[in-house]
């Protein structure tokens, strides 16, 4: 979709054209679902969060004043996930130490994109599931900050505005998340390529 087409759809959607907004939904739903899955860690909850994110985006279309629509949409998606995670806070979180030996076979349906052989594809899928398991073990606020920073390339300031916290809080959450993730991934050394020095 070209930028001109996207701007036309955005303008029509801002005028209340739901079908135009659905054109944007179809263009970005994979990216939004990827983000919500990385944060929520489970397909059904990720789908719920993605759907809610699109509904919220449609209702807040008047707040979009140009710029990177994808970034605007991803901020809404991440914030929606954060709201979902806060709502689910009563649920007991799984410790990172427990995740090392946990069965992670219920991960996301990861597509085979950069694996030339079936064996490599299987190893890559297993590594992805291991990483996702470690991400799922992070605290919710750390998880959101990590995904927004390292998956979606948001700046600290953008994360702080999206989540509604101070800049220093974002830096702290990201550094803690990376340290915890590094410790978790050491338990999957046999899955890691040799170039990684965990």
């Amino acid at each position: 979709m070209s930028m001109a087409d996207e701007q036309t759809l955005i303008q029509n959607a801002q005028n209340g054209d739901l079908e135009a907004f659905n054109g944007l939904v179809r263009n970005y739903q994979d990216a939004v679902y990827t983000l919500t899955y990385r944060i929520m860690g489970e397909p059904a909850r990720a789908a719920d969060a993605a759907q809610d994110a699109f509904i919220t985006a449609f209702r807040r279309l008047e707040t979009y004043n140009g710029g990177n629509f994808r970034a605007w949409l991803m901020r809404i998606a991440a914030n929606t996930c954060y709201d979902h995670l806060r709502y689910e806070k009563r649920r007991p979180a799984t410790a990172l130490d427990d995740l090392v030996s946990e069965d992670y076979a219920d991960g996301a349906p990861l597509p085979d994109q950069s694996t030339p052989t079936p064996e490599q594809a299987a190893q890559s899928a297993e590594l992805s599931r291991a990483i996702q398991s470690c991400i799922d073990g992070l605290q919710a606020d750390q998880r959101v900050a990590l995904i927004m920073s390292d998956v979606e390339d948001f700046s600290y300031q953008e994360i702080a505005e999206a989540v509604g916290v101070q800049l220093g809080t974002v830096k702290s959450r990201i550094s803690r998340a990376r340290a915890a993730l590094r410790g978790c991934l050491q338990g999957f050394r046999e899955l890691l390529p040799s170039v990684y020095r965990l």
Partner: peptide, 19 residues
Amino acid sequence: TVALVRRLPALKAPRDFSL
């Protein structure tokens, strides 16, 4: 660790999220 997180593949939406 950051590189491993960034190499996570993009996922396909399991359904159409059209409103």
